[in-house]
């Protein structure tokens, strides 16, 4: 049985690199990514699991990093926007489709779309795209462009 009591060294696999961080058991993955690893793409928004700005991929599935303990993430493959490298199809598609306005929600949307592509390599039905996108909020209401970007992402690959 694993038991962590007090600050512990946690090994995290983030963007295919292993990082060791000192974390309290109650530290959230979002805070550890941003404050200890300097990976600031995952954004603190509501910090309540509602807005999706902090979405990362965990083992290929989307996860809101504000609702996950860092200690839980050990042994799992975490991907943040930094891990997409800047040239992923989803990133190109978002640029092509102008799928952002203020940009605060963008990294969360990128990760949920990347996870969608991971789980559904071929274009899924429209209701599936809608279902996945509903996990994230864009206060600038750029939803149509984001949806267009999802289609472009599939067209590019």
């Amino acid at each position: 049985m694993v038991r962590y009591d007090g600050k512990t060294v946690v090994s995290l696999n983030v963007n295919n690199e292993t990082h060791e961080v000192a974390a309290r058991p109650s530290d959230l993955l979002l805070d550890v990514l941003r404050e200890q690893l300097g990976l600031t793409a995952a954004k603190p928004g509501c910090k309540n699991g509602d807005c999706g700005a902090c979405t990362v991929m965990v083992d290929g599935w989307p996860a809101k990093s504000c609702l996950m303990l860092a200690v839980e993430a050990q042994g799992h493959a975490i991907v943040t926007v930094e891990g997409l490298g800047g040239t992923a199809a989803v990133q190109k598609a978002f640029v092509e489709a102008n799928a952002f306005q203020c940009g605060y929600c963008t990294s969360g949307f990128l990760m949920v779309c990347q996870a969608l592509k991971t789980q559904h390599p071929a274009m899924p039905e429209e209701y599936v795209i809608e279902e996945w996108l509903q996990s994230n909020l864009c206060r600038c209401t750029g939803y149509q462009e984001i949806r267009k970007a999802v289609h472009m992402m599939y067209d590019m690959t």
Partner: peptide, 16 residues
């Protein structure tokens, strides 16, 4: 941030 500490246990069995 959770503003307090807790112990985290991850048992491998029901009995644990």
């Amino acid at each position: 941030m959770i503003p307090f500490d807790f112990i985290y246990c991850r048992p491998d069995s029901l009995k644990e």
